[in-house]
Computed example of a mutant assay.
Amino acid sequence: MIIDAHQHFWNYDPVRDSWIDDSMQVIRKDFLPKGLRPVLEANNVDGCIAVQADQSEEETEFLLECAKNNPFIKGVVGWLDLRAENIEERLTHYSKHKLFKGVRHIVQAETDDAFMLKPDFLNGINKLEQFGLTYDILIHEGQLSQAVALVEKCPNQQFVLDHIAKPKISNGVDSIWEKHMRALGAYKNVSCKISGMVTETQDFKWQEKDFTPFLDVIVDAFGVDRLLYGSDWPVCLLAGTYGEVIQIVQRYFEKFSKQDVLKVMGENAARIYKLD
């Protein structure tokens, strides 16, 4: 079983999706389940997890509707305002949807160096545990120390770090990134998605060997039980095809046991996100 633990859908809106700038023309259009299904089938992927790309409950409703109508979408990581006073009420509402598996906030766009450590945000994070929901950490590498502090404050919450914290791949492994990744890996309630790497390269130019040192670090830091394959489709299309992205991961793990490969490519995602 192969599960793509990280991909997105959207009906392109130039105002809402203004983050898709002029350098990203290839993804300035709609990306919906009907477009992903044949791609997954061609790459022998059995299912996926749809992750929010817009910070609204409308986005969460949209993704849940996509999942309801497309059985290959095994779960949704949506958005709720974790800082809201009524967050417990909203979590109660969305937890009634069996495909609602977790929450994500686009922290990489926040300029406050302590955003994730604010009392209102921490209150929301601390509510997730009682509902059995994950929290996806989306940050850039400069926010890693903040992520470590967050995890330290929430020892029982299940965290999933997206995109190996978005290091600058073309510059090689940075010692500070590595230090923080190893610090996060020391917490057993933190997992890491092998995703988003191709788009963290200079001008979207890369060779497969560029990723090996980074993969070496995260395997050593997290172990094969806490790593999840994710494509980051359609964003990955800026730098490569779906097939090229999945092959980076599959070829790296060729030297591992079949059991370890199954964990990284799907079993860990099924366990961590509690997929049916």
Rank of each mutant, 00 (worst) to 15 (best):
T92I: 02
L82G: 10
I139A: 05
K188I: 15
K209F: 10
H6Y: 05
R226I: 08
D21M: 06
T201L: 12
F31R: 09
K274P: 01
G124T: 14
M265W: 08
Q247D: 13
G124W: 04
L275A: 06
Q259A: 15
I27G: 09
Q55H: 11
K179W: 00
W233T: 04
R104M: 08
D210G: 02
S145K: 13
G223V: 10
V245R: 01
T134R: 10
T134A: 12
D276C: 10
K101G: 05
K179P: 00
Q25W: 01
A114K: 15
C154V: 05
T60K: 15
L128C: 05
E110K: 15
L133S: 07
A147F: 02
V26K: 14
G102R: 07
V198Q: 05
F62M: 14
N156E: 09
K274N: 15
V235C: 05
L99V: 10
D260V: 07
C48F: 03
L150Y: 01
H93I: 07
I248G: 03
F256A: 03
V51F: 00
L227G: 02
Q7I: 00
R251E: 12
F204G: 05
V45T: 08
A239E: 03
P38H: 09
K101R: 14
D216F: 00
F222L: 06
L128R: 07
N86R: 12
Q157Y: 01
Q247M: 12
K118V: 13
L161Y: 02
F9G: 05
V76C: 09
C192P: 06
N171K: 12
F253L: 13
L228G: 00
A239W: 03
L117Y: 04
D22I: 02
E200M: 10
G240M: 08
K205I: 14
H97I: 12
Y252E: 01
S145E: 14
